[in-house]
Design a protein around this nucleic acid. Structure first.
Lengths: 343, 343
DNA sequence: CACAAAAATTTACGCGCGTAAAAAAAGTAT
DNA sequence: ATACTTTTTTTACGCGCGTAAATTTTTGTG
């Protein structure tokens, strides 16, 4: 590819001594041309620096090879990790993923979705903001292109949802905590950015009542995605309030838990399962870095691979079969207990 | 936008009662048409669901409104945070950022860059993999489009580099540590994924010698971007080796430090500046979550805002002036000492 | 070597838009 | 009202490629 630049496929076809339609065929599927021809094209490809113009390619095409991936906040390690998985799977399947973050802002989510819609992608994988999402915009998208919602469900929208069974997360953890010690109180945000928080709260209350305990919920103030900071500040407030009726704290998510651990550390409270500790703290999510807190965080982990795997599988199936599969399907994966040393 | 869909600009122009070229003009710059006309178009825009086809728009255009952003590993919170800043700045300036992660793999970096090049972006912001990057591919990109390299410098390539003064990071921290206690040993990876590591090591050795101390470096085994895990496992090995000649450890970066803190915790070593502690641990980067470790991590922080701000400013200037500015410029920002409780 | 099948070529059209040039219409100042 | 300027319309072409149909060449088989 050291040779000089080629303007278009016409010119490249001339250089390689092959007709343009055949070259076009090659780029759409290298296997579809005779090996001899293929070799000649690929030799030319090494000598000249040419790549078909993606705009011209997609402009007169109904389905592109693009897959849109939209997450609410990419700087959240959970979404970064999921996005990484999804991108990898798409690439392996021969698609070109296009990644969008809504940065927690509804108007950006709308912009992303509009942009995506005009890109005529083969399919879209979206984790919506949730509460603040614009239903109609997502609905539009789902109508136009095969779309899989993941992580955050929006009732009645889209053909497929793939996510985690959030109430099961809490009941799993509550049961474990009750089995091994005191029943937990619940540390969460009053206005959480992620819509799964509500389900977790409900799951907590249900599980506690099933176990015959009365729930205690501490609602942290603060808005936005700076969850560790909120966990720290409000954790301190919670501890200082003296209202904590139990020495076991279940945090609504791992990022909050990481902040809460920092609060405990600052307040000189030892966290852990051993006898010399003052408090047990657990989280939920299986955050990529939850294994490296001090103490390491006991949590319920999403089945990352299952969620990302199923999401893309389903999407590919929708793309193949034509999207209109009929009934809306929801697939919820169970969380796995990650027993570490904080609880 | 509840009205039925419009196929193309021709049809939309008919609906709004304006000629297509004028509508086209409107979409390129809404201010460029008469207020009356603008109002009529925008009214039609509310009634009908139309957006110009992005492929057709860009196909016959030399410079698009796209800005490419390429990072080596998006699941690393440092890059996630930088990417978030860059995206926001681009959007505010009226551009459409397009985000790519190389997932630590050189072949993906090449793919990303090739894709980007064919997108004819107005400009590109790239943090290359570094050591494993394909120089020629990056060089090609720089020739074709205005490009700013950030974070990881590749000598002699590109017109502009914006990053941090890594040797200064280490000397700043070494000086602080020496001033307040024992001189530090250095904990780093033998084969770090990030090319800045080498500069930090050199900076460490230099600073130590300047201070009249003999450097001690522990080289952690392991490859890839699972830095916390490596910091944990190799940290344990380092501690157990008994080779640690000092009770102050400077980690090459915060993620390694987070893993090392976990190692210390597991080995029952108290980390902090207070008298009852066994060890001081410091990091470098100002990792978004470094403030929430236990103890909170003393570190040298990148000037995130300055790096991202300067990067886009420079890029916009290159776009405006035409890229060929002549000499290669490098801007290195100083790190800021973040004094917390680990060292 | 003839012949059918497969592959490549030739030819030609269209996608949706940018954009240039010329003509017409609308707005402004005199 | 007239002359002038700004804006819009009309008309027309081209971007780079997908793709279909008809034709020619190449390949494989008997």
């Amino acid at each position: 590819m050291s040779g000089r630049k080629i303007r278009n496929m016409e010119e490249f076809a001339a250089k390689s001594g092959i007709s343009r339609p055949t070259v076009s065929k090659y780029f759409n599927d290298p296997e579809s041309v005779k090996p001899t021809t293929r070799r000649r094209i690929e030799e030319a490809l090494e000598r000249y620096d040419y790549k078909p113009n993606i705009y011209a390619i997609n402009q007169n095409r109904q389905l592109t090879k693009t897959i849109g991936i939209v997450v609410p906040y990419l700087a959240d390690p959970f979404f970064a990790e999921i996005a990484r998985n999804l991108e990898t799977l798409c690439i392996e399947a021969g698609y070109s993923p296009s990644l969008f973050s809504s940065h927690g802002r509804p108007e950006l989510e709308n912009d992303n979705l509009d942009t995506l819609r005009s890109m005529k992608p083969a399919g879209v994988l979206i984790a919506p903001l949730g509460r603040t999402s614009d239903r109609s915009v997502i609905e539009q998208l789902c109508q136009d292109v095969p779309t899989v919602l993941f992580d955050s469900n929006i009732e009645g929208i889209g053909d497929v949802f793939v996510g985690s069974n959030n109430p099961q997360f809490t009941s799993l953890m509550v049961n474990y905590l009750c089995r091994t010690g005191e029943a937990p109180c619940f540390f969460e945000m009053k206005t959480p950015p992620n819509p799964n928080a509500r389900k977790r709260r409900v799951g907590y209350v249900d599980a506690m009542q099933t176990q015959g305990h009365s729930p205690q919920i501490f609602e942290a103030d603060g808005e936005g995605w700076a969850l560790e900071e909120i966990g720290l500040q409000e954790g301190i407030r919670f501890i200082e309030s003296g209202e904590m009726r139990t020495k076991t704290v279940l945090c609504s998510n791992d990022r909050l838990a990481i902040g809460f651990l920092a609060a405990c550390y600052q307040k000189g409270m030892r966290v852990g399962i051993t006898d010399d500790c003052d408090l047990r703290v657990a989280g939920m999510d299986g955050h990529p870095f939850s294994g490296f807190t001090c103490p390491s965080l006991t949590t319920v982990s999403h089945d990352y691979e299952a969620i990302s795997g199923r999401s893309v599988e389903t999407l590919f199936a929708m793309i193949a079969n034509g999207s209109g599969s009929g009934a809306r399907s929801e697939k919820l994966f169970e969380g796995k207990l990650l027993l570490r040393s904080s609880a």
